[in-house]
Design a protein around this nucleic acid. Sequence first.
DNA 1: TGCATTTTTGAACACTGTTCAATATATTTG
DNA 2: CAAATATATTGAACAGTGTTCAAAAATGCA
Lengths: 208, 208
Amino acid sequence: MGIAERKEREREEVKDLILNAAREIFLSEGYENTSIRKIASKIEYSPGMIYLHYKDKNELLLALHDKAFECKMKALFLDVQNIADPLERLKATGRSYLQYGIDNPQDYELMFILTCTMDALAIKQEFWSDGATAIGMLKENVKACIEAGYFRKDLNLDETTLLLWSQVHGITSLYNTERLNIYPIENKKEFMFRTLDVFFTIVTTGLA
Amino acid sequence: MGIAERKEREREEVKDLILNAAREIFLSEGYENTSIRKIASKIEYSPGMIYLHYKDKNELLLALHDKAFECKMKALFLDVQNIADPLERLKATGRSYLQYGIDNPQDYELMFILTCTMDALAIKQEFWSDGATAIGMLKENVKACIEAGYFRKDLNLDETTLLLWSQVHGITSLYNTERLNIYPIENKKEFMFRTLDVFFTIVTTGLA
DNA sequence: TGCATTTTTGAACACTGTTCAATATATTTG
DNA sequence: CAAATATATTGAACAGTGTTCAAAAATGCA
């Protein structure tokens, strides 16, 4: 009998309904102002009902994190895969990452700044596989740069990968947390991309 | 008559009493768990009393931010001033910054990650002068590196300064927000410092 | 239709930041 | 010294938070 299946499907539908409502509130009002009660009232359910689908708020936020990774970060890395030259691919990845980070500050916060997501993973005794996969692709790119002769062969793969990741993350997060307001520059975004270009310049002339 | 002066002094003492209690709770329990009621009960006052000395919670957190900058960040930059060679001074600053950031994650969050501090400044229509001063000193250091012939003369000062700042901030914040847990490395701190060394290596061999 | 099972509710608990009339303390004046 | 004024402090109240769970409503099955 298909009742169990239908129930399961309905459960998934409600879970998605919650997630989409949560996402809408999260994107428009931010992390601090996303409350269980607001989500519940948006989909016209009681607050307690959400806890029948998500263990707690952190798990719900982790689901939002997963969606952002699935929909955006994955696409970001796949989009640059058709760039044959590994160095050009690396540069394009960095620029796309920065662009995505400043265009989607809420998602970026959830993915790379807030610890509630890491807490949710820790409780489930799970690994941050989304992050590991993304950085793994970056690592492959670095490896290709070494093999193509762009970077020195004696470089440590993980160190070089972290170097790149932390550079773009640093610029992105300083901007998103308003720390770059110390610069009285009209076009801050251009300033950041120019800085990233300086980085790529010294990487190419220095790592080779 | 010295009554007004005494009152003023007493007000400052109470303000300090609040700040020290807040700091204790903040350092041991973190940002999320630092509440006005906890601070008030620690110093055996009513919650409302705190609002006679600090406009709101953000202003109190900004005061904690200021203290961290005053006590630690300033000392960090002054300590390296006796290093004559500008490049060695720059490297030492970067390493000290990273070390301070991972040794004092709560303070670091307040100074360079949380936006509540920037919100408090914005409401008071004030500039983030603590940050600007610190990065200004870094900029001076970069300038000295250019003048000493370590870096190319055509480099943009602000871009190069941001390059350095965002690199160390990136490593520090990725570690503090547990994102480096994707690396199954036993000694993560060593890994970070090695990465920073790679950065300085490419900076010296590349920026020159 | 009646019974059993599942789903959903919403009040309750212990918190949070913040305000403000009432109270308590301290100072000045008669 | 006592009364009047001025300052300091309180704590209840408001509107919110995440979370739980007994009770109520809805559904499935005989």
